[in-house]
């Protein structure tokens, strides 16, 4: 009886203030989409850090046949030069920084390349001669890469020393900024959502003053009087959250998994799994929003 009665009260309330309920749904939808986007960007950053920082290796590219770089003026690197570099990498002086160094010959680079881009037509036309030999240097402490880079940059026979982080870091920076912007917008929208839910609950309470007056008079408990209003707000906000999750899922599925992941391949992407990961958080935020609004409003409008 009680539950059925409360449900029917909620139904009446939502129908009576349909346009307000819809606006609550839309505002929570938009605000939580931004919250979710900020969250997903952070997850993406985490994913990229994991992927790139774990395998941090400084790559020392050795001079190929025809290079414009000054240190490669002597043409392809000689075996003596290669040997000298190897000895230096293995020397006690570098032991503090270098965990291990592997030499990758032109043939090995070619094999690895062919394996990675097996399906690409343009990879077929390459020959081992066109590939570049390199040292892959695993570091004891990835943040010390500058020391190693300084040590080997500018040597004869060394074309370039590269840290993969140099590529990823600006990207991470951009994404961090983006997630901050998203979080900022989310904050403003959440504030708007709270105010709107507050107004909605207030309107709903006003339009049912007659009912709540009688309820108080005949001794209905406070919770019983307030519950329909609270649940109204919570239901509207939860629908907004569900829509936000759906929006993020579609965005992830079609924008990231189907499009971005196909066109920019060197980055590991977050996917729809991560959307499911943050979905409970979004729903919890929605319910918290409604709860805050209810507490603020109802204590004033339906007190005993």
């Amino acid at each position: 009886m009680r539950l059925q009665f409360i449900l029917s009260e909620i139904g009446i309330g939502l129908r009576r203030n349909l346009s307000m309920a819809v606006s609550v749904i839309l505002v929570t939808f938009v605000s939580l989409t931004f919250v979710g986007a900020a969250g997903l960007l952070q997850l993406q950053i985490g994913e990229m850090k994991d992927d790139w920082y774990d395998q941090v290796e400084v790559t020392i590219y050795l001079c190929p046949q025809d290079s414009d770089v000054p240190t490669c003026a002597g043409g392809q690197i000689s075996d003596e030069q290669t040997e000298a570099l190897r000895e230096e990498l293995d020397s006690p002086a570098m032991a503090d920084y270098v965990e291990a160094a592997y030499y990758e010959s032109q043939e090995e680079a070619y094999d690895a390349f062919q394996e990675r881009f097996a399906d690409e037509w343009w990879a077929q036309g390459l020959t081992p001669d066109q590939m570049q030999a390199s040292f892959r240097v695993a570091l004891v402490d990835p943040s010390q890469y500058q020391v190693v880079a300084d040590q080997f940059t500018g040597r004869q026979g060394v074309e370039d020393v590269r840290d993969p982080r140099a590529v990823v870091e600006p990207l991470i920076l951009v994404m961090n900024r983006l997630s901050l912007v998203a979080a900022g917008i989310a904050g403003i929208m959440l504030l708007a959502a709270v105010l709107l839910i507050t107004t909605t609950i207030r309107l709903s309470a006003m339009s049912r003053r007659r009912e709540t007056g009688i309820m108080r008079l005949v001794g209905a408990s406070n919770l019983f009087i307030q519950l329909p209003f609270m649940l109204e707000g919570a239901i509207a906000a939860t629908i907004g959250a569900v829509m936000a999750v759906a929006g993020l899922w579609f965005g992830m599925r079609y924008l990231v998994e189907d499009w971005l992941a196909q066109s920019v391949q060197f980055i590991p992407y977050v996917g729809t799994d991560e959307v499911w990961m943050i979905a409970p958080v979004l729903v919890a935020v929605a319910i918290a929003l409604a709860a805050i609004s209810s507490v603020v409003t109802l204590s004033r409008y339906t007190k005993v």
Binding site: F5, V218, F224
Partner: peptide
Amino acid sequence: RLLPNKTVFENVAFALQVIGKPR
């Protein structure tokens, strides 16, 4: 102080419903 959109029966039943009396 009756509820205009509820019938006579519902108006009286309302007082019992809101204090959780069984059907």
